[in-house]
């Protein structure tokens, strides 16, 4: 199976910027595609899991990088 990984760089954007950028990227993607979301908004730490629950997509990983920014890995489900 071919899995495409997309990177969505939403660094510097505030709420709801990262989620909107992610949702727009997901729109044209295939189910099963992986997304790497990069963000600096501290609100994304609670917002990305909430978004995943609301939208039914799968949050595979959430980490804080060395520079203090955040990286999320999401799998498009629907």
């Amino acid at each position: 199976m071919n899995v495409t990984t997309h990177t969505v760089d939403a660094k510097g954007q505030s709420c709801p910027g990262p989620l909107v950028a992610l949702a727009r990227a997901l729109k044209d993607a295939q189910a099963g595609d992986l997304f790497e979301l990069l963000a600096t908004d501290p609100g994304s730490r609670s917002d990305v899991p909430s978004w995943a629950e609301l939208s039914g997509n799968e949050l595979l990983d959430a980490e804080t990088l060395e520079d203090g920014s955040f990286r999320y890995v999401i799998r498009k489900v629907a």
Binding site: C15, P16, L19, V20, L22, A23, W51, S55
Partner: peptide, 12 residues
């Protein structure tokens, strides 16, 4: 507009 956009972005 923030809430309406976020809901739409969350698949609602």
């Amino acid at each position: 507009t923030i809430l309406a956009t976020t809901a739409a972005a969350s698949g609602m």
